[in-house]
């Protein structure tokens, strides 16, 4: 393996790592966090939750996952008492 090939394959390894990490953070970290939480492994769940980033994160409109999470986790009819 000559120097050119070594550098080229090094670049391939770095690109693969970058894409792998991005894929993990975008699509796997959140389900993994829930998986750990179900098994009461809170530290692991918190670690996985910290890795989460939203789908594309390119437009800047989806980089705040906290309120979305809160939205989803909110009980659906909290104010039903006064609405009735």
């Amino acid at each position: 393996m000559n120097t050119q090939e070594l550098i080229a394959l090094g670049a391939v390894a770095m690109a693969s790592l970058f894409l792998g990490a991005r894929f993990f953070r975008s699509y796997m970290a959140e389900p993994l966090s829930r998986f750990f939480l179900k098994r009461n492994q809170v530290r692991a769940a918190m670690w996985a939750r910290k890795q989460v980033r939203s789908g594309c994160a390119d437009c800047g409109q989806c980089d705040t996952t906290a309120p979305e999470q809160a939205l989803r986790e909110r009980p659906p009819a909290r104010h039903s008492a006064q609405n009735d």
Partner: peptide, 10 residues
């Protein structure tokens, strides 16, 4: 993939 992920979330 991003569309699928955001649909899952929403």
């Amino acid at each position: 993939l991003s569309t699928l992920a955001v649909t899952r979330r929403e």
